[in-house]
């Protein structure tokens, strides 16, 4: 598969999310949306206008929002529970664990404007712990789509999947990736670029940056494999094993690396495919700064990924 051409148009994945939920709702009246006063931030205004009785706004009450979602699923609905990722996951963690995961309720949890999209608003409004927290919950599918197409596919797959799903939806502008014909499937990673010198495993907003890093590395004669690991739980172990065969793995994500995608990959490698790794992500509570500044500051850029890859290769040769 060839590298994507440089993209010019950037997209807010929330648009693909709401467009897809509306499409699904038009043909399936079980689809409902549940929000915490987040009609605007979830961009569900049109959904509300088209399907007024199917937009359930519980107000600013995330625990009840998730519990109500589980109840709606019990009542035969397919609820898309949408709220800012930070509040949805942190405030309602026990409801996600018990009412959704443990109960195996057919609830679709959509963390909106996730990661560090809220930038300067600070750590209260960042959802970077979400992947670490939620992948610890048994039988809860966790998906971090990379672009509008994958967001739409993830939402369709979530609706078709019988069980709880968390979809981490970014509003940070991302290009539409240039892909082959590989259909989206929950639990299956996508190899966007083959290469034997090193592997970069990324998801969400880091995937296009990983591809750009691979371009930079290619110019230096380094052949990097790029893997889009959209589903963090259940994770694609074969894809990790294949990546490990290159002799080095860089992971990159808009989340805590320890416990997040990086942690998941490291767990597998430690037991089954020991390999040197660099885990790019955020370290914890972050300093004040815009989303773009934070990504730059913590090396979550094409340059940062390429530098980590070079470092890994240098250490391997040492």
């Amino acid at each position: 598969m060839s590298a994507p051409a440089p993209a010019v148009n950037l997209h807010d994945c929330r648009d693909a999310y709401v467009r897809t939920v509306e499409q699904l709702a038009a043909s399936d009246d079980r689809i409902v949306a549940v929000v915490n006063d987040s009609v605007g931030s979830s961009k569900l205004g049109k959904f509300r206008d088209r399907f007024p009785s199917r937009l359930i706004n519980v107000g600013i009450a995330e625990q009840n929002m998730v519990g109500v979602g589980a109840g709606l699923a019990n009542g035969g609905k397919i609820p898309f529970v949408s709220g800012a990722g930070c509040f949805l996951t942190a405030r309602a963690m026990e409801q996600i664990k018990v009412d959704c995961g443990y109960s195996q309720a057919n609830v679709k949890l959509c963390g909106i404007s996730s990661g560090v999209a809220y930038g300067e608003l600070g750590a209260t409004h960042h959802s970077i712990e979400d992947v670490a927290w939620l992948r610890a919950i048994d039988k809860l599918t966790v998906i971090v789509p990379a672009d509008p197409w994958e967001t739409a596919e993830a939402i369709r797959a979530a609706a078709a999947h019988n069980g709880p799903v968390y979809v981490k939806i970014s509003r940070m502008p991302v290009p539409e990736l240039d892909r082959g014909d590989t259909p989206f499937r929950i639990g299956r990673a996508e190899v966007l670029r083959t290469g034997d010198d090193i592997a970069i495993i990324a998801n969400g907003t880091l995937v296009h940056r990983a591809l750009a890093a691979a371009e930079m590395l290619a110019a230096e004669g380094i052949d990097a494999r790029v893997v889009n690991m959209a589903t963090v739980s259940p994770i694609d172990c074969q894809a990790i094993a294949d990546a490990a065969a290159t002799g080095g793995i860089v992971t990159a994500e808009e989340a805590l690396a320890h416990g997040g995608l990086g942690g998941a990959v490291a767990e597998y490698c430690a037991e089954h495919a020991p390999v040197r790794m660099r885990m790019l992500g955020f370290p914890g509570f972050l300093p004040t700064g815009s989303a773009a500044w934070l990504m730059e500051h913590f090396g979550l850029t094409a340059d940062g990924i390429a530098a980590a890859a070079r470092d890994l290769i240098a250490r391997r040769r040492a």
Partner: peptide
Amino acid sequence: HGLPVATGIAVA
């Protein structure tokens, strides 16, 4: 936990 879930069932 039970009352929020029961409330959701009742909304359905």
